[in-house]
């Protein structure tokens, strides 16, 4: 039996210490691209959270029930990206069919997720962590999903904070050549410095 602290550490470390955007450099494209407005940042975060959770479950099962037993781990890259891509297609289809409201909220962001390295990155990291070997298949799945949730929350946190800063930046007087992405990157660098300090938590 694994103790509850494992889950706590998994959430805290993947949300704050190994923050997916600022420490692991995953999902930088949406971080820069969709963070101009707080509203769209939150929409993107919601879509990422949902897809990330489902994708970690699916790929974990695929890896430990198919790829690992047959010794064909080497096809995991192509298998994972295609699983994520088809997942996104199916989710988009269902949302289109059954909930117009939800589609209005998430519709634009769903296709963007296929090329979001955050999802594929977290899925790969979860497999590399060997949770199934450490905790057993079932508990390992729980830990993997927990740390995926932590990563998604960390993404949402940084997206929200960054979009708020950018809304202010738009109103600030910035030298001509620094306007837009360059100054945002420097701001992101300062945010990364701040997150560096969170490393002392554990």
């Amino acid at each position: 039996m694994i103790s509850p602290t494992v889950f706590f550490v998994a959430i805290v470390s993947s949300m704050l210490i190994n923050n997916i955007v600022l420490m692991r450099f995953l999902g930088v494209c949406p971080f820069l691209g969709v963070s101009r407005k707080t509203e769209s940042a939150l929409g993107m975060s919601a879509a990422v959270t949902f897809v990330m959770l489902v994708a970690s479950v699916l790929t974990y099962i695929l890896y430990y029930l198919v790829l690992d037993p047959f010794g064909i781990e080497y096809i995991s890259t192509i298998a994972f990206i295609l699983v994520i891509a088809s997942l996104v297609q199916l989710v988009e289809m269902f949302i289109k069919r059954f909930s117009q409201k939800l589609y209005k909220m998430l519709g634009i962001y769903l296709p963007l997720i296929v090329t979001n390295c955050a999802i594929l990155g977290i899925v790969e990291i979860n497999i590399r962590e060997n949770y199934a070997v450490q905790y057993g298949f079932g508990a390992g799945l729980a830990v993997a999903v927990t740390s995926a949730l932590g990563a998604a929350l960390g993404f949402a946190l940084v997206m929200f904070a960054f979009s708020s800063i950018r809304e202010r930046l738009d109103a600030a007087t910035v030298p001509e050549s620094w306007k837009g992405v360059p100054i945002s990157l420097v701001v992101a660098g300062i945010m990364a410095l701040a997150f560096l300090g969170l490393g002392g938590i554990v």
Binding site: L82, V83, A85, S86, Q89, L90, E92, M93, K96
Partner: peptide
């Protein structure tokens, strides 16, 4: 599966 879901979508 992937391309199928793409076409369906």
């Amino acid at each position: 599966i992937y391309i199928g879901s793409y076409v369906l979508n």
